[in-house]
Structures are given as structure tokens and as C-alpha cells.
Design a protein around this nucleic acid. Structure first.
Lengths: 226, 226
DNA sequence: CACGTGTGTCGTACGCTGTACGGAGCACGT
DNA sequence: ACGTGCTCCGTACAGCGTACGACACACGTG
């Protein structure tokens, strides 16, 4: 139709397809991402979309790759390795919060894309600079990655509006109190409010800092022994 | 039919239904758990099952609760708080590995059951014994929980047979090498083998120990300042 | 013993899903 | 002018969750 079309008669681009699919998955949930719905958004018959992916599984792989490739590795000028690593992990959490569907995608399939590899390389580099051996840096990265993924997985509240989220919290608090009354859970009872909001506040930074400190101390003491 | 039936004419028990559903989900994946399939296993018409749950969502909630309630809080006689907490988290990982579907269920829905509450209470108790304030103990628990959940989420390889898993690893390694060649990822290239096996080995214990040490040091130094 | 009544079971059907298949229409090389 | 091939999509099928209503049996009451 347009003059400058690269391929003939192709009515949408692969970018359009993946962008729309990712938007649907992130805003309405992975369940809302159906072939027919995607076709309706792009004003295209459902079967046409199979030009751009082999199957729905393939589509999910592709949008996972695409979302991860959006990741830009931050670099803090004049910061020690702990600040650098913390910045990378915080940015990674931010990416997951911007693309909530990515959490499920990452736990469901193996995503090996350029974007994630870039962040691995950067993190490993900072860790080696701090004195980690190669294999130890990999183990440290595994721990950091697991922490971020797990935290966001727990954090994402099914992405409802904030009042629904608050109501959900209240329900959780009540259930915790109920448990505490029928059985002996005094700590849970007295800390029910904090527990319900466990994932909302700045717990992320707290745990991340403790993990990084723990990693650093371990390397230092290992080096001191030599 | 049988003489000693508690409720009349009810052909299967709620326990049967939930056990079968959980077994299907854990052995064949959550996708394989369909109402019709569950009915076939229990030799019952699909619609009959709606006596035992309101909807499939409700069924998933119930099997998540049930799996979590299997959790038994370990107690190490004569161990300091670090050993105790590590034991709880290791047992939690074991539970998730025994019930792989639980990982997705925990990231998809809010599970507040007696089983999980019991483990929270125990962990908080150990943490408070170590000098954590209430809110700080909650933050520490959040970090530990996130770490375990994230690690297992990354660990579960779609639960295939071990040779398929090895082949998958090899594929990942190759992709990493490819990336490293076309772009500049020297560290990823040299550590590709370790990265592919990141989640298989004893990385879990390594990261967990670092996290717990980091938490402990932070509390001690905070107490020393007072 | 006869008879409503309530409860557990399930056959049928509807709208949704992913996608296999084959036909339609157009661009292009000869 | 005419195949040839590629893009697009209408139709169809099996499988999903589940609403609805019919059926059969156990039981309390007369």
C-alpha cells in the first residue's frame, strides 16, 4: 500500500506484532493475549499472524526476548562494585515491573537473549573486579538474579488497581490474624500488617544490600586467608 | 455404595480430588491439569467435580494451599539461628522441587495458608532471637523467601528428563558462545559452561549462606552502634 | 408401604481457545 | 500473456471451562 514498503503486500511489521502482543500481555495479563485478540488489535485476520511466529509458544518466546532486550545496563560513574551491581539489579527489577508478564515468561521458559547476556557480562565484570573468581562470580550472579526474580514474582499483585490491592492486603491481614488466634502464631499476629505489605515497601533494597554485603565479605575473607 | 460412607452417594472425596489434581499438575505440568482430564483420572464426569470446587481458579487455590500445607518446619537441635533459618529455607526449596507447579501457583496467586504461616512464624522467631526487630525480621524474611522462590523458579527446567535437560544446557551454551563471538562478551564466553549449569549445582547453598551472613552482620553492627 | 423432597451425578451445549487446511488474489519472471 | 509463488484469510476441528437442566437415588413423613 505505502510506497516505501520493504516487503510487498505485508500489512504489518514483525515489530508491530511483537509490540502489540507485549503491550496486551503487560497491561491485561498473559491470559488476555490470544491470537484472535492480537489480530483484532492489528486489524488482521488471526491466521495471518502465523506469518510472524510459528506457534503461540514461539510468540511468547519472542516477546520475552524482546522485553529483555529492552534492558539497558546502567553504569554509575565513580561508584564501587557494590553500587554498580545494586544499580544493575534495581534496573532489572524496574524492567520486570514495567513488563509484568516477563516474570511468568522467565519462570516458564529459558530466555537466552542478547539483552540478558549484556547484563550478565556487566555484572560478572564488576564481580571479577571485586576479586571473585570466575565460577564464584557466576554463583553470585545466580543468587542476585534469583533474588530479584523472586522478589518481583512475589511483588506483582496480579497488577490490579491500588484500591483492590489494598483490599487484598486487608484480607491477607485478616487471614493471618485468624490463623494466629486459632493456633499459636504470636509473631505473625503482631506483625500481620508488616507481612501483608512485605513486598510493597523498600524491602527490596534492604535484602539486596544484605545479599551484596554478604557476597563481598565472603570474597574478602577468602582473599585474606591466602 | 460402600457401607461406611460418611456422606451418602458421594463417589470420591475432596482429598482424592485435590491429590489427583496436584499429582497431575506436578508430574505433567499445570497445562495438563484440565477438568476433563481430572475427571478421567477419577473416573467421574467432568461436571461432577464442581461439587468440590467452585471454579478452576478455586481448584488451583486449593491445590496450592494443600501443597504448601505439606510443609514441615525443620528444627535443628543445637544449631544457631543461621543454621535454623538455612534449614527452613532449604526445606522450602525441597518442597518446591517436589511440587514444581507450586512455583507458578505462588507467583500467580496470593497463597495464605496455615502451612506457610507456620514457616513464617518459625523463621521470625529465629530472627528475633538473633536480635532482629519485628519489622526488620519481616524484611529479612521477605528477602529469604524471594531468594528461594526465585532460585527454584529459575532452577526448574520445565521438569524434563535429565538428558533433555543436558541437551537444553548445551543449546544455551552454544547461544552464549554465539553472542560472545558476534559481540564483545568475553566473560560470558569463558564462563558459558558454568552459566548454563548455574541453577543445577550447589549455587543455592552458596547464595543462601551469603544472604544469611549479610543479614546477620547487619543486625550485629546495628546493635553495636547502640 | 407410598410418596414428595432434596441431593449427588452427569449429558448436552455454548462460547472461547490454538491452529491445520485450502482457496483467493496479487506481484513478478519469463 | 501466462505460469509461479507468496501473502492473506475463511472455514473448520478438537479441546477448554462451565451454565443449565434432567435424572436417579436416599430419606423423612404420612
Amino acid at each position: 500500500m505505502a510506497a516505501g514498503e520493504l516487503s510487498v503486500r505485508t500489512v504489518v511489521s514483525t515489530d508491530d506484532v511483537l509490540d502489540s502482543a507485549l503491550r496486551i500481555a503487560d497491561t491485561e495479563g498473559l491470559d488476555a493475549l490470544t491470537i484472535r485478540r492480537l489480530g483484532a488489535v492489528l486489524d488482521v485476520a488471526p491466521m495471518t499472524l502465523y506469518r510472524y511466529f510459528d506457534s503461540k509458544e514461539d510468540l511468547l518466546d519472542q516477546i520475552a526476548d524482546r522485553a529483555v532486550d529492552r534492558f539497558e545496563v546502567p553504569f554509575i560513574t565513580s561508584g564501587d562494585w557494590k553500587k554498580q551491581v545494586a544499580a544493575i539489579m534495581t534496573a532489572f527489577r524496574q524492567l520486570l515491573l514495567e513488563h509484568p508478564s516477563l516474570v511468568l515468561l522467565l519462570t516458564t521458559r529459558r530466555v537466552v537473549s542478547v539483552g540478558i547476556t549484556r547484563s550478565i557480562e556487566a555484572t560478572l565484570s564488576h564481580l571479577q573486579g571485586a576479586g571473585f573468581t570466575g565460577p564464584e562470580a557466576v554463583r553470585a550472579y545466580a543468587g542476585l538474579f534469583a533474588y530479584v526474580l523472586g522478589f518481583v514474582a512475589f511483588e506483582i499483585p496480579r497488577s490490579g488497581p491500588p484500591d483492590a490491592q489494598a483490599e487484598n492486603d486487608r484480607m491477607v491481614v485478616n487471614r493471618l490474624h485468624d490463623f494466629a488466634k486459632t493456633r499459636q502464631f504470636p509473631l505473625v499476629d503482631s506483625l500481620a500488617d508488616e507481612l501483608a505489605e512485605m513486598a510493597h515497601g523498600d524491602s527490596f533494597e534492604y535484602g539486596l544490600a544484605r545479599l551484596i554485603d554478604g557476597l563481598g565479605d565472603h570474597v574478602e575473607s577468602a582473599r585474606a586467608e591466602k
